[in-house]
Design a protein around this nucleic acid. Structure first.
Lengths: 203, 203
DNA sequence: GCATAATTTGGAACACGTTCCACTACGTTC
DNA sequence: GAACGTAGTGGAACGTGTTCCAAATTATGC
């Protein structure tokens, strides 16, 4: 068995396997974008990725793993894009809100996709902890990076910074869930985040 | 149709109906307590509550509604119990942490039950918003009550108080999800909450 | 190139949430 | 107490996540 757990392993296997994995994630993405969580049906993903159902399950042991992996890829992309530039804003709160709003805008542009990924994230159990960890790290990195102004070495990141970033991440996640599940509007979510960030980061 | 939506309506119908509803929620409770989310199977709930499957669905239109209703009952009980007494602690942070720890202890004593209810809460969509609202209100009330020291009229509750309580509720929910899904231990959760509350409530 | 192992395939089968339906029991109205 | 409408019953059936398996295909070591 050369690939014990293709979804998280560093060793991504042969080119054909990497290609299959990408096709699967792309299919997941497409289906989630057009129809949300319910539209990501394992048979549909397999068919669109041109892969047998059994193969799909060999690469991703459950629908949740699949979606959380897709979420991880998206977050890592976003994190990479945000972290290579300076963040505008004079205070920590302003900068953090800047990146949060930016991410929110991106997510609101793809509500179905966001719904699918968020649902999966919230439903994941410990068997998905590796994939979850990727998302959590990306989130924390984004926030601490913004706190520090976007310049790579403008002061080391302290434990306190990380704690703060995690709290903000928590609020953000709860707000996201409320929005995704239709319990609050985009405006309410934005206002709530603004309030929370100012509460936590009183520069 | 005398009961349009028995799970949220004020009018709870005849005594027999109230009795059935209680039996269903009790069965849900028992199954969730012993086996968590997965053990709450609609056929099993129906059988244990001595009710036909169709009847179960008439009272609660989905498994999620059922579990969130159960969560609502639990939260309202907890809220009522907490709100009729004074909360010890000299600062807002201390008092809030007191109630949070108290609730955490209760939940950790019934991990499977907590897992089932939290999962359902996180998975609920807008069709469950009534039931969700009950839980959210109870949570906010518990926190604002603690902030104000537990004496009923020791200062009115301001909008700001509610905003703070909601933020704390958000962090608490995220922490709960992380704990429930086995991604963090009870100790980590407690430490994180402590940090967050002190960050938000610097008396 | 062959033998062997690993992977993929196609599809059947199972579990559980949900829907549906024909039938029965109950309670309300006159 | 007869007729009617509402609620409850028992159970079949469907959809989708998941598991399983035998056969076909591909990769690997010699």
């Amino acid at each position: 068995m050369s690939i014990a757990n293709p979804s998280t392993s560093e060793d991504l296997g042969s080119a054909a396997q990497r290609e299959r994995r990408k096709r699967i994630l792309d299919a997941t993405y497409d289906l989630a974008t057009s129809g949300g969580f319910d539209a990501v049906q394992m048979r549909a993903v397999a068919e669109r990725a041109d892969v047998a159902l059994g193969t799909l399950y060999r690469y991703f042991p459950s629908k949740i793993h699949l979606l959380v992996s897709a979420l991880g890829r998206q977050f890592e992309d976003a994190s990479a894009r945000l972290n290579e530039r300076e963040i505008p804003g004079d205070t920590q709160a302003e900068r953090v809100l800047y990146v949060l709003k930016r991410m929110a805008r991106g997510m609101q542009g793809d509500p179905k996709l966001t719904e699918a990924l968020t649902r999966a994230f919230m439903f994941a159990d410990s068997s998905v902890s590796n994939e979850i960890h990727v998302v959590g790290m990306a989130m924390t990195t984004i926030v601490t990076h913004a706190m520090h102004g976007g310049t790579p070495d403008e002061g080391a990141i302290t434990e306190d910074d990380v704690a703060i970033a995690r709290v903000i991440g928590d609020v953000w996640l709860s707000a996201l869930v409320a929005w995704v599940t239709g319990r609050s509007t985009a405006e309410e979510t934005a206002a709530h985040m603004e309030k929370a960030v100012h509460l936590i980061l009183r520069d």
